[in-house]
Amino acid sequence: MNNDCYLYEDTFLSLLNLIVYLIKNNIKPGNIKNCQYIPNLLDHVISLKIEEDGNIINQIIQYMGPYTFRSIYYVFLSTEENKELILYYLILNGMKYKEKVLYHRNLKCVEKTIKIAKAVLHEAHKYKGFTRFKELENHILYAEIEPTNDILILISHHFQKRLRTEYWIIKDVKRGILSLYDKKKYYLILEENFTLETTLLSQKENEIENLWKTFYKTIGIKERKNERCRRNFMPKKYWKYMLEVESEL
C-alpha cells in the first residue's frame, strides 16, 4: 500500500504546482493533503519545497482548455475529502486526453470531478439568490452565509458586478472569512483581522424587512400550497439567514 502523503500550502496555486511536479517526476502519491492535515499512524508525510510558478494556470488552460480548468478550480473549492487526489488523477489523464478529458466519463476521476464541480456551482448559484443583506447604520450592506463549499469568492464576483454602487460585506460564518467590497474591488479577509465599525442596523431596516415579509406571505397562492416543492427548491439549510422564512424554522 502507498502511504506517501504529500502536503501543499493550502492555496490553489500550491496544489497545482505540487500535482504537476508529481506527474513530471513520475511520483505516484498515496494521498495529497493541505498543511493543516493531521496525519494518522500509517501516513508517511512528505513536504516538498517546490517553487511556486504562477504560469502553471495558463499552462493548464492552454493544455486542457478553460472549461476543464474551471472544473478543477470548483473541485478545489469543495469540501470533498479526497479532492486533491481526484484532481491529481484528472490532471494526469488531462496530460493524455487534453481538452477532451472531461468527455471520458467512464473514468472515475472525471465522473467525480464533474459531479463535484456541478455541486459547487449549484450551491454558488443558490447563494446568488438566497444571500440576504441588511443595511447597517453607516449604509454598508452586510450579509452572513454558511455554505457547504467555499463559494464566497464565486458570489463575491457576482455581487461585485451587481451591487457595484454599494459598499458591502459578506461573511462566511463557518470559515471565518469576510469579503469586503469598496465600490472598486472585493477583498477576502480573515475574521480575526477585521472588526465591524458598527453592528447597528439602519433606521429603515425594520420597515423594509416587514415589507418583504408581507410580500412573501402574500404572493403564495393558498389553493396551490405545496410544501414539498418549496423545500425541494429551497432546502432548509439556507433558511437560517433568510428573513422571510427564518421564523418557520
Partner: peptide, 9 residues
Amino acid sequence: ICHSFSSDG
C-alpha cells in the same frame, strides 16, 4: 436567478 420560493413552491 430565483431569490426565494413561496408557500406554493
